[in-house]
Computed example of a mutant assay.
Amino acid sequence: MADTTPTTGHRGPDHRATVRDVARRAGVSPGTVSKALNGTGQISSATRERIRSAAAELDFRPNALARSVFGRRSFTVGVITTDSFERFSVPVMLGAEDALGAGRMSVFLCDSRGDPIRERHYVEVLLERRVDGFIVTGRSSNQRPPLAGTGDLPVVYALTPSADQQDCSVVVDDRTSGTLAGEHLLRLGRRQIAHVTGPDDFDAVHQRLAGLRTALQAGDATLVGAPMFGGWTEAWGRQATQILLRAHPEIDAVHYGSDLLARGGIDALRDLGRRIPEDVAITGTDNWELLTEGARPPLTSVDMGLAEVGRTAAHRLLDAIDGRPHAGREQVGCHLVVRASTDGTA
């Protein structure tokens, strides 16, 4: 039978409510309290709500160490990234923290800098800290070898997929990003569309190009000139745009494989005396707001949903920790953010 004795005023200022206090208040066992507050176990919704109400009334705050010992979990997750620039791993990690924080999970972030030896070291360190699982991310959507040495602990890959198709990988939809940009430019009446992108050895480069070509073919249009492959730099965006416009002055739109390339393209078009978007409309990729909103004019760009990649990866990892693992690759959708570089009124 539940203990209904009022507690307000009966506990000294130094007394902290325990699991047993909550259990007595709710009329259940301490084990049931732990399961209810951790979101595990087969407990009726009415019982779970009664326990949560009792915990709130007693101002109960779970002790992390006690939760770890009782549930044989540390309530921590290791995040290993190869993105030393942090452009891509930071939004992925913020999304992951949003999801993990709701489950009272803490995150250890380790940057391996693409060094396999450093990565193995971090895996060992995180295992010593008894993490409950790993999220692995990077700066590209090129697949990578599976994370080694993790034993039976669950691993989820975010943005950068595992080469093992059975591993759980949450990735962006690069192909659709190119299609969205191409369809947008065609809707604006642009027909002479060119493409400036990154290195030829990036999977994302070819997927985005394929998506752009799909949109152009559906609109009975073709790419003007050859796709311009190069570095992910403003300098390449500037140089490639100058080469294209001098060879094909009829170009009335350019889709760039990244916002950094597009910022270089804006400089080149201005130097060539071309107005944006009146003469040439431009679109970027990534929706890096530091660049897109600071550009002159502000840049239309495809948002790849990196935060959602992180959130989804975290949810998949939590499922795996609770014994419900996921397998295979899962794509997160992207969307176009229209600004003045294609729509002068935006």
Rank of each mutant, 00 (worst) to 15 (best):
T5D: 09
G9Q: 07
A17W: 15
D21M: 14
R24K: 15
R25E: 13
G27A: 08
S34N: 10
L37Y: 09
L37V: 11
L37K: 07
G39L: 06
Q42E: 15
A55K: 08
F60T: 01
R61K: 15
L65D: 07
L65E: 13
A66T: 12
R67W: 13
V69Q: 07
V69C: 03
I80N: 02
E86A: 12
R87T: 03
S89K: 03
S89R: 05
V92C: 04
M93S: 03
M93R: 01
A96Y: 06
D98Y: 08
A102L: 08
D111Q: 09
G114A: 00
R118K: 02
E124W: 11
V125Y: 03
G138P: 01
S140M: 15
N142K: 14
Q143N: 01
A148L: 08
L153H: 12
L159M: 06
Q165M: 06
Q166M: 04
Q166E: 12
T176K: 09
S177G: 15
E183Y: 05
H184D: 03
L186T: 06
R187D: 12
G189E: 07
R191W: 04
I193Q: 01
D200W: 08
D201R: 09
V205E: 13
Q207M: 08
R208N: 13
R208G: 12
A210I: 11
G211R: 09
L212W: 04
A218S: 13
G219C: 06
L223Y: 07
M228R: 04
G230K: 14
G230E: 09
G231C: 00
T233Q: 05
A240K: 09
Q242P: 00
L245M: 15
R246I: 05
A247R: 15
H248K: 05
P249F: 13
L260I: 14
L261E: 02
L261M: 03
R263I: 10
L269T: 08
R270Q: 10
R270Y: 04
D271G: 05
R275Q: 14
E278M: 05
D286I: 01
A295R: 04
R296V: 11
P298C: 11
M304Q: 10
G305Q: 09
L306P: 03
L306F: 13
E308A: 14
G310C: 05
T312K: 05
A313N: 04
A314G: 12
D319S: 14
I321G: 03
P325Y: 10
A327I: 05
V332H: 01
H335Y: 00
V337C: 02
A340I: 01
S341R: 04
D343G: 08
A346Q: 10
